[in-house]
Amino acid sequence: MGAEFVQFSLTPILIGMFAAMACALPGNFLILRRQALIGDAISHVVLPGIVVGFLVSGTIAAGPMGLGAAGAALVAVVLIEAIRRFGRVEPGAAMGVVFTTMFAAGVLLLEQTGSAQVHLDVEHALMGNLEQLIWLRASGWASLTDPAALATLPPELTRMALACAVITGLVLAFWRWLKIATFDEGFAQSLGIPTGALGFGLVIAAALAAVAAFQAVGSILVIAMFICPPAAARLMTNSLTSQVCWSLLFAALSAIFGYVLAGYGPLWLGGQHAVSAAGMIAVVSGIILGLAALLGPCRKGAQAI
């Protein structure tokens, strides 16, 4: 646990943790509102978003591609709502129509413009490249206090930490509104809480998390983190505050153990190469959910009583 760890494992683990926690936070409310699959839809439309961002800006810089992804998430949410409301299509089907269409358009654009050759491939968007976000200039724990070395931290770390902080701030600021509008929308409206705007804001926060996270960890991890840690947390407690805390813990644990297992697991089993860290993090979060479903103290609903 020395220089090598700081160099090769510290930053990916931190990025994975921030990404997982940034997604788990809004995920708590999405699950309680029965909107978990909005997370699924958002993560699928990220691809067309980055393709458009790339085509418009001509670069693979994070800024324009992130903007494109955020824009795509917005478009998707508006379309889903419009189809649901004006077409009277049930929400799941409306989501299915919108995200598959946008994803298909993204793939087609990618193929048509040949941007597939410019380091912008579908697999990357799906699976991420967490393993490559290393801190080469670090020479050990001391680098953490060395400004020169700190300046060479992968920019994804700063970006992900910032996104995580912003989302945490938003959830804290609107905690009461979120709680009351999620539990009892009609009552919230009678108090004058703008539930429509609040719900939209929640989806935007989720989109922000997805956009910040997918470049590092890919969109599968995004779906798994939106849902698995909060779902497992729901089975641990009957208090919203503790549920959110548990979900953050589960998200962090998934990131740490997932990364370590992906990196070292195959070596322990005699293999020579690491496996996908993002995939392994999703698997660990699934194992945590499975354990919570088997053993969680509040795993059963009230109807059993």
């Binding site: 798994a224 690491a274 999703a282 479903a293």
Partner: peptide, 28 residues
């Protein structure tokens, strides 16, 4: 069936986790 979680959470969890496992195997 076994937990209080709703179907949408179950769908999302299975989707993400199984796909993650698939990606792990693919890299293998």
């Amino acid at each position: 069936k076994r937990t209080r979680l709703a179907e949408d959470a179950a769908i999302g969890a299975v989707l993400g986790v199984f796909f993650g496992a698939g990606v792990v195997l693919l890299t293998l």
